[in-house]
């Protein structure tokens, strides 16, 4: 199995040790359901751990397949404004009253990694970038979906402006709510991937990710980080808050 689904991650994946630790923790945390028990009756706990390893390996395989399937030219369907879901649902790994408050005055977007101009950006500087907007469907990993309208600078324009290494593999994000995630470069450069500052034409409200979120209509909702405070470009697999717990990393739609 190991060799068959060899990770396409260079240099030696720093995540693998971390992932193994998480695997173990997860496995201990989740009591085996009846379904799993029926499937594994007669197997020892070690076998169950190797089952977990196979599942993680299959998830890495699915990352690769999705990378191949991803067409950088293919646009997500767009909708008329009348199709927008009202009210648009709030969703995070915490409740709505725990949404972080970001001070617009003090805010600085930090840049790191394989980027030529790494000076931090203030909000007025970011807001001066060319803008576009689009009405697209946000699809949650849970299965529900909702249509919304986001506006901002095409992420590709921003990456070009800061001199990011566009041949690097990953773009990582850190957020004011301690969330973190990462995406593949191909998706980062997709024409519909936006560094979004507005929702429905208004400044992005705190619950939707003030001062900015990454809006990626070609990925599931949890791959769209809110309250972004740092962006870095890297060739080392950065993982993510949910991804490290078991959600598929690529999670493209």
């Amino acid at each position: 199995m190991r060799r068959l689904f060899k990770l396409d991650r260079t240099p030696v994946s720093p995540a693998s040790k971390e992932v193994r630790r998480l695997e173990r923790r997860l496995f201990l945390r989740q009591s085996l359901s009846l379904g799993a028990l029926t499937l594994m009756s007669g197997c020892s706990v070690t076998d169950a751990e190797s089952v977990q390893r196979v599942l993680w390996a299959m998830s890495r395989w699915n990352d690769r397949v999705q990378g191949w399937l991803f067409d950088p030219e293919k646009l997500a369907p767009v909708y008329p404004e009348s199709a927008i879901t009202r009210p648009f649902p709030f969703n995070a790994f915490y409740d709505e009253d725990e949404v972080p408050e970001v001070d617009a005055e003090d805010y600085k977007l930090e840049l790191a990694g394989l980027i030529r101009e790494r000076r931090p950006w203030t909000l007025p500087e970011l807001h001066a970038l060319p803008r576009t907007s689009q009405v697209t469907r946000h699809i949650c990993v849970e299965g529900w979906s909702a249509i919304g309208k986001w506006g901002g600078v095409p992420f590709r324009t921003f990456l070009e402006r800061i001199g990011a290494d566009l041949t690097a593999k990953y773009v990582g994000f850190k957020c004011a709510d301690d969330y973190y995630t990462s995406i593949d470069m191909a998706t980062a450069l997709h024409p519909q991937t936006l560094l979004a500052f507005t929702y429905a034409g208004e400044t992005l409200p705190p619950k939707f990710g003030f001062p900015m979120k990454l809006r990626i209509p070609t990925k599931l909702g949890f791959k769209n980080p809110k309250h972004v405070t740092a962006i870095y470009v890297t060739n080392m697999y950065p993982g993510g808050y949910w991804e490290d717990q078991g959600y598929n990393w690529f999670s493209g739609s």
Binding site: L26, Q30, S33, L34, G35, L39, L55, M58, G246, N248
Partner: peptide
Amino acid sequence: LTLGGWLGGALQ
């Protein structure tokens, strides 16, 4: 009756 323990496990 379900398999996976949580959503992420079931998706895997």
